[in-house]
Amino acid sequence: MRATKHAAPQSNRRRGLVMGIPLALVAVGVLVCLAFALLPRGGGGTGAAEPAAVASAAATEPSAPPGTGVPADPTPSAAPPSVTSPSPAATGTPSPSASRTPQPSTPVATSTRATPSPSAATGGAGAAPATASLAGRIKPGTSYQGVATSYDAADGNGACSFGPSGDLMIAAMNHTDYESSRACGAAVLVRAANGASITVRIVNECPLPCAPGQLDLSHEAFAKLADLSVGRLPVTWTVLSPGAAPDTMSIRYKTGSSQWWCGIQVIGHRNPVAALEVRTAGGWRQLSRTDYNYFLSPDGSGCGGPIRVTDVYGEQLTVDGIAVKPDVAQPTRVQFARH
C-alpha cells in the first residue's frame, strides 16, 4: 500500500514539469513578438540606408535657380582653347573660309576713346589698359634732358622693323627709354641749347651704354642742330602728337604668319602705340610686344580677325577685314587723333 501511495505523486510532478517547458517557450515567443512590435518603423539597416542614399544623391546635384528648369549659366570650360592649346582644332579661331579669305571691300574700322574701368588694371580680356601705364617711361608733353649723338642711318631701317625710310629725319632711342619697342614710331621734338630744333621719328634702338635720355640721331638730323664734329650735344626733347602724319595707319603681318602663328605690326600711326589686341572666341586678347616692334599671337588665336589698337592717350581703333598677308602693309582708313 505504501508503494502505491508514493507512486502517484511522483507521476504528477513529472507531468507538470513536461507541460511547463512548452508554456515557457510560448511566453518567450510572446515577449519576442511584443519587442519587435514596439521597435520604431524603418529602424532596420536596409530601411535606413535607402533614405541616406537618396539624400546623398540629392546633395550632389546642382539645384536650378528659382523659376527656371535648368541652370541659367552653365559652367564654362576651364580656359579658352585659344589660350591653352596650339592645336589647330582647339584654338577657337574663325575657320579659314570665315576669316582668312580677303574680302573685296575695304577694311572696316571704328574709333573709340578708351575709358579705363576698375578691372582694367588687372589686364583682363576686353579691358582697356590703365591710363597710368599707357605711355610707359616716356610720356607726351613731358620734357626730358639728355645728350644727342649721331649714327649712319643708311636706308633708315632699324630695330623697329618699319623698313627703309625716304625721310631720314629719324633717331634711335636709348635702350632704357626704348622700353621693348614702346617708343617706336614716336615723333620727338629735339631742342639744342643754341636754339636750333628738329622733329624726328623713332625707328631704332641705341643699345647700352646709351644712357637714359640719350638720342642717337641720324647724321642728317644731327646736322640740323650742330656740326657733326661736335659729337655729343646736350638737348631737351618731348614726345609730340604731330599734325603732319600719314592720313591712315596700316597693319602688317610678319613673315611666316598664318592661322597658327602670327606677328602683327602697326605702321604710320600718329601717336605711340600702347597696346594691340585681337578678337578671339573668348573675347579681346592683348598680345605681348617684342623688341622688334611686332605683337605676337603664338598659338594663332585672333590671326586674321578684328584688331584693336590703343595709343598712349587711350584712343582705341578697331579694324576688321585685315587678312593674313605676310609682309604687306594694309591700309585701315583710320588714324589716331591729334593732341
Rank of each mutant, 00 (worst) to 15 (best):
H175V: 11
L189A: 14
M169T: 09
A192Y: 09
I202K: 05
G163P: 04
V200F: 09
P207H: 08
F162P: 01
A172E: 00
S181M: 05
G166H: 05
C184E: 08
V190S: 03
C206R: 06
A192C: 06
I170A: 01
G163I: 10
E179G: 06
A187W: 10
A196Q: 15
Y178L: 02
L168F: 07
G185W: 09
T176D: 14
D177W: 03
C206S: 12
N194M: 12
R201C: 04
I170K: 05
N194T: 14
P164Y: 08
L208Y: 15
A183S: 14
S180W: 08
A183I: 07
I170H: 02
P209S: 08
T199M: 03
G166K: 13
A183G: 10
A171F: 00
P207I: 10
Y178D: 05
L168G: 08
N204K: 03
I170V: 14
R182K: 14
R182Y: 13
H175C: 07
R182N: 12
R182A: 12
L208S: 14
D167Y: 00
C206L: 09
P164T: 12
P209V: 11
C206M: 04
V200K: 10
L208G: 12
T199C: 03
N204I: 06
V188C: 10
R201L: 14
C210H: 04
I202D: 09
G185H: 07
F162W: 13
E179F: 10
N174L: 04
R201Y: 07
A172M: 02
M169I: 00
R201D: 12
C206Q: 01
H175R: 09
V203W: 01
A211V: 10
S165H: 11
N194C: 11
P164K: 13
I198F: 14
A171T: 11
L168K: 09
L208R: 13
G166Q: 09
D177K: 00
G195D: 15
M169R: 13
T199N: 02
R191F: 06
C206H: 05
S165V: 02
F162I: 07
A187F: 10
A172K: 01
E205S: 15
C184M: 09
G163M: 07
E179A: 15
A172Y: 01
S197V: 07
P207N: 05
A193F: 10
F162Y: 15
T176F: 09
A172S: 06
M173C: 07
V200L: 12
T176M: 09
C184W: 10
H175F: 10
L168R: 12
N174T: 02
H175E: 15
G163Q: 02
F162S: 06
L189F: 11
L208P: 13
D177Q: 04
G166E: 07
C210R: 03
L208E: 15
E205M: 15
I198C: 11
A192K: 08
A172V: 06
G185K: 02
I202T: 05
D177T: 00
V203M: 04
I198G: 03
A192D: 08
R191I: 00
D167L: 00
C206E: 04
M169P: 00
N194V: 07
P164H: 05
V188N: 13
T199K: 03
E179Y: 13
D167G: 01
I202E: 04
G185P: 08
S180E: 10
D167A: 01
L189Y: 12
V203H: 03
L189C: 03
N174I: 02
A171Q: 00
A186W: 11
